[in-house]
Design a protein around this nucleic acid. Sequence first.
DNA 1: GTAGGGTTAG
Length: 644
Amino acid sequence: MDSIQTTIKTLLKTPTQIKSPSQAKQIHAQVIKNHSTFTSDLLSLYSKFNLLPESLTLFNTLQSPSIHAFKPLIKCYTSNSYFFESLKCFVTMRRMGIHPDHNVFPSVLKSCTNLMCFKFGESVHGSVIRFGLEFDVFTGNALLSMYSKLQRFSALQVFDESPERTAFDQSENVLHHSYKSYPEVSQNGRNPSALSHMSDQDRRNVPMQSVRKVFETMPEKDVVSYNTLILGYVQNNMCNEAMMMIREMGDAKLKPDAFTLSNFLPVVAEYMDVWKGKEIHGYGIRHGFERNGFVINGLIDVYANCNMVEDSYQLFCSLSERDCVSWCSMIAACVKNGLFDEGLSLFRQMLSENVKPVPISCSSIIPACAHLTTLPLGQQLHGYIIRHCFDDNMFISSSLVNMYAKCGNIKLAKCVFDGMKHHDLVSWTAMIMGCASHGYANDAIFLFKQMEMEDVRPNSVAFVAVLTACSHAGMVDEGLTFFNRMVTHYDIAPDFEHYACMADLLGRAGKLEDAFDLICSMPENKTASVWLPLLAACRVHKNVDLAEKVVMQISKLDSDNVGAYVLLSNIYSSVGRYKDAAKVRHILSKKMNKKEPACSWIRIGGKVHAFIAGDESHSNYDGIVNALDILFGQIDKEGYVVDH
DNA sequence: GTAGGGTTAG
């Protein structure tokens, strides 16, 4: 009997020899059989394999658990994402007067981070200092991670009032007495009045200044410390600082690992820096990270943002195992590059491989349905979203509002919008744009004003939406007021789209000279297409002189713009200047030879039918011509003069 | 002990 006891004891003291959960369970069976009492050691073993139910069963057999029993249970709760239970366990342990050690704090801090328990996290930090563990590298790294995530939320004041977090922040502060011992970190970024005078960039800097302070005080820093700080900088939009950290890492003789690469890749993607992307890709291959899913997914995103979606696809194919994120990255890569059909077919392929869509998959694929105006598929997805309770997700709801509006069902768009608990800038904009494109200008303007009243600051896109509404409804004064408000009140520089809307609005109202002057006042990025609505307006108002001036401007920017010449020729015809019209058509015919003809297409019963101007090759060409004749006949009957 | 993918644009 003694020899078995000794063997069990030896095994439990050298847990590296135990390689699987089933071996751990076999040892547990032997412990019970031999009436041994190695509960804490067994708990550590179960915790090593993240076996929560087994750990709990063991823990509950203990009358007065020691630190050695609490430690593995807290770790096990955290590893299994039971963060609230992890903190409750920690509080119980402290109430029993048990002192935590360096193994406990990383798990506890991670739980605080995930539950967004900022105040409680600070008091845990106080406790770390009180127990003299602030120089432990694992604990320090957990603190870095906690502050870089929680202070960001706190500084930007988007904390929600989750009941779990409030419970901890308000009541269970058994450690709160030590809160005062670390005032520098706790004060920064939490006081809204202190932040109100700051610029957005300064507000972003606040949390990272505190994190940097924690970093500087760490006597020992490892790759994880640098990676955590790099991620913090990236997530706080401080890209240069993130880059500097990679350099500092090199100075400290630490090599970037897969975490470093995947943490930094979003910066490369955002800046569309294809050369940096390739450099990182090469480094990844040389250092054996070419199979790391996080690195590959980051690179898929980089190449997609650089319009190199085929490279993204090659990487996607190189993955031996594709998880939900890799599918989603590739689908998003297609959708970003306008490959909507390919995105949808990947989505179907993902389902056929039994990878279940998560909320992010839905918000990536719905825009493809919106662009392709495939309402039935969009509705199927909406059904899935409701069945899986994803419908309280802002990203999904906004994309649904847009999808229904684009597919012509403004009522359902409004229904989704009204069903949302909160509205953010994007959801307001999607709804305003929906109303604008359906001709409900007053509703769009009302929604815009309501958004402003709810303290949601409109951005450039929201102004495009409301100006579109004004333009469609010919509301000149309102449009001018919004345009000026955007510049003077919100300090937003008008973009191409805003000028295009305004030129269209002024042109339709007959204020052609004003529209001309407005476009001339555009500081830069003038394109031919910003002039085209004005040219159309010149035609409606039969202003030949201005039309000629406009075409001159267009030809400077794009000498092959066929649309402009067609319009000019029509304008000449409409005022009886047929010779001029013929001249323009002659120039046009030369230009047309150089241009690829435009193509339109329609999908019927899963088959795509394409049409090119002058093309008579469709198998049902005669039938189509007959149908058109009937339609033109009906149009004539109703008194509408067809405008050729 | 550290990591990824998403919504709005005449």
